[in-house]
Structures are given as C-alpha cells and as structure tokens.
Design a protein around this nucleic acid. Structure first.
Lengths: 115, 115
DNA sequence: TATATGCGCAAGTATTTGCTTGCGCAAATT
DNA sequence: AATTTGCGCAAGCAAATACTTGCGCATATA
C-alpha cells in the first residue's frame, strides 16, 4: 500500500539508513550496495524500491546497471520536524541553566571554617 | 520484540509524531491525549508505551492519572543523523549555485540588435 | 553465438505492527 | 459503601513488513 510510504517510515529501518549512508556522496550500483549486506540481493532491491518511492533516491540506468543516486534534500522533511523540537529542548536546557546559575548566585554560601 | 525499538521506528508512525507534538510543551495525561484521536484509548496507550520504551517520554503518576512528559532530547539521535546529510545537501546546493553563477559570468552574452 | 552478469517480478513465509474488545485494579467522586 | 473514572493487561485479528527463492529479461563479455 503505497499510501503509507513516507520518509519517516523509510528511514525507520536500519538497513535503509545504512543504504542512504552508502550512496550519500556518490551514486552506487545496486549489486555493489547489496554486497555490503548479509541479506539477499533481492531484499536490498526491495529496500531501494521503498527509498525510491518516497523520493530519497533516483535510479539511473547505465546499460544493464542501475545507479542509485541519493536525493538527500528529501530529508528536509525530517530535518524540519526534528528542528522544531531541537529548538525547544535546547532553549529549555538554557533556561534551566540560567535558572540554576541565578539560584547559585543568590544562595548564601556559608564560609568553610578553617581548621 | 523490544530489540527493534528505536527512536527512528518510534517516530515512523504519524500518530506517535502527533502525540509528541501534543506533549512537547507540557505534560498531558493519557486520557486527554486519547481524546484527540479517533482510535481507541488502548491504541493510544500502546503508542505511549512505545514512546516511553525508547525514552521519548516519561510517565509520572499523579493519583490515578498518568502524566506523559516529553523527553525531546532523545530526538538528538535523529537530529544528528539528519544533520550530517543536511550539511551535505546544502553545501552541494551552494556548490551548484556557485558553479552556475560562474558559468553565467563567463558566458558571452550577444547584444540584442535594435530594430 | 553462447555464457555470464545485473537486477526486477512474483510468490511464499515468518514476524511485526496497529488496532479493537473485554476485563480488572487503583484512585477519585458521589 | 457504591459508583465512576483512569488506564494497563491480555488476547485476537487484519494488514504491513522484511526476507528468501526461483525465474526471466536485458546487457556485457568471452
């Protein structure tokens, strides 16, 4: 059911994340990718299909070989989703830090008596 | 099988992403969350369990109510993974832009003759 | 031309996922 | 004390997922 295919689901699988890692810098053909994994070549082919279907890669035919070319810009969807929370958790961290530092400045510190 | 539970799988489901959105700013109790969705309360309870198991939220008991408190810092795992590619695709875009601009400067532009 | 290689199609299988329903326990309310 | 509310446990079901195996087509090589 193609309606369920989205980027978040595509990257949920560790094998597909590893594939993205392989093709991020330059296109790689299918069999070369498949050789790096312990599962069958067909299993990798199916993963590539999923990544292609949600736009994370293009497949370019060169003779009998198919080159998989990453479309990393499609990860922007995940990047933006995470970014909104990243700002939330980092600003909260800063608020907490500022609060604790203010507490530290205000709290009286009894002098340690010398022995 | 809990071994498969990770943050990427947790956020793969749109319902769980929506739940995270609901609790991001302040803790919310389980039934209040469940009321916002069309599925059964128990289905939401199961989603909350998944989010709790991978560390995306804590559950705090207050009497008979359970408050779900987001742990957004756990999304750092996704943030970092996406960030490495974000830098790649934005720097590639800049390289392409620079290249095209250079091409534009060098290309001779024939003057348009006046009629 | 014959053989080898690249790789998707299709079918089948086991596992996982997302959901519903019924039940039961603890806490709050009446 | 009785009832209501909050909510997890467990079982069951349908759909989705991840994988394997066998086959066949197109292209490259010998």
């Amino acid at each position: 059911m193609e309606a369920r295919r989205d980027v978040f689901q595509a990257i949920a699988d560790p094998t597909r994340r590893a594939i993205i890692g392989m093709i991020a810098e330059q296109p790689v053909n299918v069999n070369t990718i498949a050789e790096q994994f312990d599962v069958s070549r067909q299993a990798i082919s199916l993963h590539l299909k999923i990544l292609m279907e949600c736009g994370l890669l293009n497949i370019k035919q060169q003779g009998r070989e198919r080159l998989c070319e990453a479309r990393l810009d499609k990860l922007n969807e995940v990047h933006e989703w995470v970014q909104q929370y990243h700002q939330l958790w980092t600003s909260r961290l800063k608020s907490l830090k500022g609060f604790l530092e203010q507490e530290a400045l205000q709290a009286p510190h009894p002098k340690k008596s010398k022995k």
